[in-house]
Amino acid sequence: MKSRQILAVPAFLWFGLFVLVPLLIVVVISFSTRGTYGGIEWNWTLENYHNAFSWTYLGILFSSLILAVFTTASCAVLGILMSWAMSTAPSKNRHFYVSAVVLPFLTNLVIRIYALRVFVGYRGPLQATLNFLHIPFDPFVLSQNKFLVLYGMVTTYLPFMVLPLYGAFEKFDFSLVEAAQDLGAGPWKILFSVILPNLKKALLSGVLLVFIPSLGEYVIPDLLGGAKNMLYGNLITEQFLKARHWPLGSALSVLMLCLLLGVTFLYYRGLGAKNVE
């Protein structure tokens, strides 16, 4: 063992103390009781889980799942097309394209959502255009709806899909495409039979990278969805910051984590089985 490995100790401690332990704490709290004024009392109970499995909450979880699946699927379709276009662009432009896709992701999410609200909001360009074209609309529905949430999610998480796919495209041997063209395959046939099988790994990791954070997303549905479209992230946040029912919030979080771990596990097992074929 090299002596400089000592230098890793502080980071280890930090990760342990402020990433691992907090996660365990959440699990512990999920078995505790809510205090009268919102604190935690260390009386062990399963009641929080009992509550967490109520139909209302499961319904919210379900609509969050649907949204996450839609987000992931849209990102996958868009990501494949975009990274395909990017990687076959002239090589001097490619770096610029990658930056263009990644840059917004590194700027503030709240600002981007805000910009979107300006865009669809009262007297914003979208409403102005609709007015101009004499298309009737409900301004409240227009500025807060499910589609807008989906749109916000997709534009936010797209880089997580594009980056791994683009990386894989860069390593992809494009002479295979030429060979397929030579054999008479059209572009979509080539995509499905030649390109995608070689991009499988990147696509699958992109899917996870989009799916996992989008299941618990809070800011986007909160700002674009309105009160009617409650999602799991908002539910959890509400338990912590408004209802001050931390044990229930913890139980809901643990449930979501278990779901995510389960999905990831099944996903990789399915993957492993497929690779054996």
Partner: peptide
């Protein structure tokens, strides 16, 4: 990779 919200509340 953990959902930001879990990170925050934990």
């Amino acid at each position: 990779i953990f959902p930001e919200i879990v990170f925050a509340l934990s």
